[in-house]
Nucleic acid binder design. Structure first.
Ligand SMILES: Cc1cc2nc3c(=O)[nH]c(=O)nc-3n(C[C@H](O)[C@H](O)[C@H](O)COP(=O)(O)OP(=O)(O)OC[C@H]3O[C@@H](n4cnc5c(N)ncnc54)[C@H](O)[C@@H]3O)c2cc1C
Length: 550
DNA sequence: GGATTGTTGCAAAG
DNA sequence: CTTTGCAACAATCC
């Protein structure tokens, strides 16, 4: 049974009904042409598999699409279809099956998603399908920013990005669901719904259905629930703390990485990463807030600025090839990270929270049990793995974060790992986080450490940051013998960090980058101008840059 | 071309 | 409690 026609809205990182321009377009097209709206989400084995995507993030995604399904049922009586397949494998069939006339979706900017979208668009080309795309994941259409940018290239520092934003002005205002209009759409014929039901499209699968162990039995850890309503509620709650004063005086480096009962940042990142909350809605709320309160903080550190970091990194991620890797990435310094068995072993020890440094291991436990770590906690983890202590490539850390974080985001994860490893954006490599001193600064009493590392709970506070210093008797009394109940330190931080600073110096002196740095073009599918092709001397191009000194 | 700037370190010395 | 070494960094702004 094929439908005479339909409008397909493909949900990806826009799992919301509010301020969803693409969805609004789909709805108005359906209305105008009297066709049913068919919303679809793909559980794509390329992304939604237990290797790349851990159970906490998977659960968050499933919760978000469940919430979306309910919301769409209520708001426009259009059932969200959830299809377990690669979009490129099934799109032609779906177009035939539903007689798709219009395919609508929001742009994504990461290369693999871009490639997938191009493939799908090519697939449906032969079917006379009108493909409609909107920008909505970020505050700005990247091309609008690039048009105003110097030399049409993305800025690489925050201050120049901010002046660009200043030039361009505020982003477009958020829009209401269905542009605030009444929604009465042509309903989908029962026969079609029946077919879709038979194929299992009408229900959101459970974790167990798609090859995951159920992790919902874990208790005692903070649980971040997916969904648009949850995200909006979280935003509202944060912005109303002390009548907005908390948000108004927000200063990122002053928020505590050790706060776990009540978080000191918004924890909107997972909602922004999946589009449960629109960045433009958040932005508009912050603009409001700043009009009604005195805000003294620097742009970079106040709450509004956090969204600018996101915007900044997404603009770059759409321009820079191999943004999530060192090789082939023109903004990333080439650094001789450790390789081989020793690198494997170190990575494993770090990832299994067995470094022997309570602060680092507690943070890793927080990552694994909750899928979220405060920004400065991520700094500690990332610095330790890379330039601080272990000298293991940031790409390995990236993958571990991708797996465990509920807020995993291609651009933000890449950019921040490069930042922390002094591979890009930040270069003062002698500023090294100490796993002991930094812990003492933020987690003086060790409450955070004890919460996430129960084995250390009975240890006197005096030794909580450096348990190896506790006398044997004290260790025994606390039921925490070093080398038995809790591991020996894997490295001596003061020794390792000094060696690594010296190595950094050598690596910086080589002045090599992952690729030649030249003109770049945003890879967002609108192909603004004809491609500038390299003349064919491909491999011989040096990745060394002119040195200014020495 | 030279000065300025850069979200968020640490430990030791004065 | 402030300054300095770590080591001279890159990008941008005039
Ligand atoms: C090694 C490392 C890896 C990271 N990986 C990710 C990731 O995969 N996904 C992710 O969302 N964030 C990542 N971050 C950035 C940052 O730590 C988180 O965005 C932030 O901690 C989320 O908490 P929040 O929502 O409470 O932030 P808030 O301080 O409340 O900020 C609000 C929003 O601003 C944006 N934002 C905040 N900090 C940054 C930043 N440094 N860079 C870019 N955007 C920012 C986020 O969208 C965030 O939700 C990473 C940071 C580091 C150091």
């Amino acid at each position: 049974m094929t439908l005479p026609g339909s409008v397909l809205h493909w949900f990806r990182r826009d799992l919301r009904t509010a301020d969803n321009r693409a969805l609004n377009r789909a709805i108005s097209l359906a209305k105008k042409s009297n066709l049913p709206l068919i919303p679809v989400f793909f559980l794509d084995p390329e992304y939604h598999n237990p290797t790349a995507c851990g159970p906490l993030r998977m659960r968050f995604i499933l919760e978000s699409i469940s919430a979306l399904q309910r919301s769409l049922d209520d708001k426009c009586s259009s059932r969200l279809r959830v299809i377990c397949a690669r979009p490129t494998d099934v799109f032609p069939d779906l177009v035939r099956r539903w007689g798709v006339k219009h395919l609508v979706f929001e742009y994504e900017y990461a290369p693999s998603e871009r490639a997938r979208d191009e493939a799908v668009v090519a697939d449906v080309e032969g079917f006379d399908v009108d493909v409609v795309r909107e920008h909505g994941f970020t505050l700005y259409n990247p091309n609008v920013l690039l048009q105003k940018a110097k030399g049409a290239t993305a800025p690489t520092t925050m201050s120049s990005f901010l002046s660009l934003v200043d030039d361009v002005g505020d982003p477009e205002n958020p829009v209401e669901f269905a542009d605030g209009r009444q929604v009465e759409l042509t309903s989908c014929p029962d026969a079609t719904l029946k077919d879709d039901d038979k194929d299992g499209y009408l229900l959101v699968p459970k974790l167990g259905d798609i090859g995951y162990e159920d992790c919902t039995k874990q208790t005692g850890w903070e649980r971040f629930r997916g969904g648009e309503e949850e995200g909006i509620a979280r935003m509202d709650e944060f912005l109303s703390r002390e009548g907005g004063k908390v948000a108004a005086r927000f200063a990122k480096p002053k928020t505590s990485p050790a706060a776990f009962v009540k978080r000191e940042t918004t924890v909107l990142s997972p909602y922004l990463a999946l589009g449960c909350v629109s960045s433009r809605v958040f932005h508009a709320r912050l603009r409001d807030l700043e009009e009604n309160h005195d805000v003294a903080e620097m742009p970079q550190t106040r709450l509004w600025g956090q969204l600018m970091w996101r915007e900044h990194f997404w603009l770059l991620a759409g321009m820079v090839p191999e943004f999530h890797r060192m090789n082939g990435n023109p903004v990333c310094r080439k650094i001789n990270w450790r390789t081989g068995d020793e690198a494997e072993l170190r990575l494993k020890t770090w990832a299994e929270a067995r470094t022997g440094y309570p602060w680092i291991d507690a943070l890793m436990m927080q990552l694994k049990t909750e899928g979220f770590v405060h920004h400065l906690g991520r700094h500690s983890l990332a610095c330790f793995l890379t330039r601080g202590d272990l000298w293991v490539s940031w790409e390995e850390g990236y993958k571990v974060f991708e797996h465990y974080l509920v807020d995993y985001d291609y651009a933000l994860n890449s950019a921040n790992w490069m930042w922390l490893s002094c591979s890009a954006f930040f270069s003062m490599y002698f500023r090294v986080y100490s796993p002991v001193a930094f812990a003492k600064k933020w987690d003086k009493e060790g409450a955070f450490i004890k919460h996430y590392l129960p084995v250390l709970r009975k240890l006197p506070t005096k030794y909580i940051h450096e348990p190896w210093k506790a006398p044997a008797m004290v260790q025994k009394m606390a039921g925490c013998v070093i080398g038995k109940d809790y591991p020996e330190r894997m490295v001596d931080h003061s020794k390792a960090s000094k060696e690594n600073i010296a190595k950094m110096k050598e690596n910086y002196a080589r002045n090599e980058y992952g690729a030649e740095r030249g003109e770049r073009q945003h890879m967002n599918g609108e192909s603004r101008s004809s491609e500038s092709r390299d003349s064919g001397d491909g491999t011989s191009r040096k990745t060394k840059r002119r040195k200014t000194r020495r």
